[in-house]
Each structure stands twice: as C-alpha cells, then as structure tokens.
C-alpha cells in the first residue's frame, strides 16, 4: 500500500490550500468540490449498521485494515458534509490506528471555517471524527488480540 505522508503534514497542506481563498464562497466551493471527488461508496454499505448518528444529513462510513493501516470509505446525501468527510478521509485514511487515535485535527480550526464546521452539532463533524477514531480503536484492539 502506498505510504501516506504523516497526518500533521497533510493537515498543513489543506490549511495552505484554504489560505488561497479569501472569501467564504470560494472556501465552500472548494469543500463542495472535494465532496464531488470522493470515490462512490458501494450501495451495500449504505445501511443502518454503517450510518453515523448525530448528523442532520445521512452519513455512511466503512473502514478496513490493510497492512496495518486503516482505509475509510464514506458517503453522504448532503454535499457540504460529503466535502467534510472527503477532507477527513484525506487526512486519516491510510494511517495507522495509533496515529488516528492520537490525531488532534487542529486543521479544522485553522482553515477559517470553524464557526460553522466545528461548533454546530447539526453538521455531524464531531460525530464523524468520533466514529473514525472509534473504528481505529476497534481495529487496534482486534489486531492486538490476534
């Protein structure tokens, strides 16, 4: 599997990309664009088992362990949320469970959209991060047990 750069480095890259935009429209359009580029999730995974609660929109997420690294796949019926997932997957997918559990994801505050993305419960950002970390913990426990 291709080696991903460390989490903080990807976070810095994303922050730099968002710094290119000085108004909210461009930032959101970029985020929406990221969502559009998210690889589609197989419909078989769009069920209750893979649904993340705590979002106004519906989010489905699946993870797998490949060569000691976690790979996430996800989708949503809302575009901005899809952009958020896409961004989180870019940062966390392909990383080790330990790195994912420890990631502080400070880039979310740094991209200048905090007032929306971090504070409101409705966009489910926190629920998504929580689920990604829970999956990482579960994979780590499973790996340690075997």
């Amino acid at each position: 599997m291709e080696q991903r750069p460390p989490i903080p480095q990807i976070e810095d890259e994303i922050v730099e990309e968002f710094e290119l935009f000085d108004n909210w429209e461009d930032k959101y359009e970029y985020l929406i664009d990221m969502g559009k580029k998210l690889p589609p999730l197989d419909n078989m995974h769009k069920d209750d088992e893979h649904r993340i609660r705590g979002c106004q929109s519906t989010v489905w997420m699946v993870s797998e362990l490949r060569d000691g690294q976690i790979v996430y796949h996800a989708d949503s019926d809302a575009m901005i949320v899809k952009g958020l997932i896409s961004m989180l997957i870019r940062v966390l997918s392909g990383q080790t469970p330990q790195d994912i559990i420890q990631a502080d994801l400070g880039f979310i505050d740094r991209i200048g959209m905090t007032s929306h993305l971090a504070q409101t419960r409705s966009n489910g950002l926190r629920a998504m991060i929580k689920q990604m970390k829970l999956d990482a913990t579960a994979w780590q426990l499973k790996a340690n047990a075997s």
């Binding site: 959101y28 106004q56 929109s57 809302a78 575009m79 901005i80 929306h116 409705s122």
Partner: peptide
C-alpha cells in the same frame, strides 16, 4: 437534488 442542510449552511453564511 439539494439537501436542506446544505441550503441552511450556505444561507447562514
């Protein structure tokens, strides 16, 4: 074709 949540966020902006 547009989720209400997307509308709500962009209107708030």
């Amino acid at each position: 074709g547009i989720h209400p949540q997307d509308i709500g966020i962009l209107l708030d902006n």
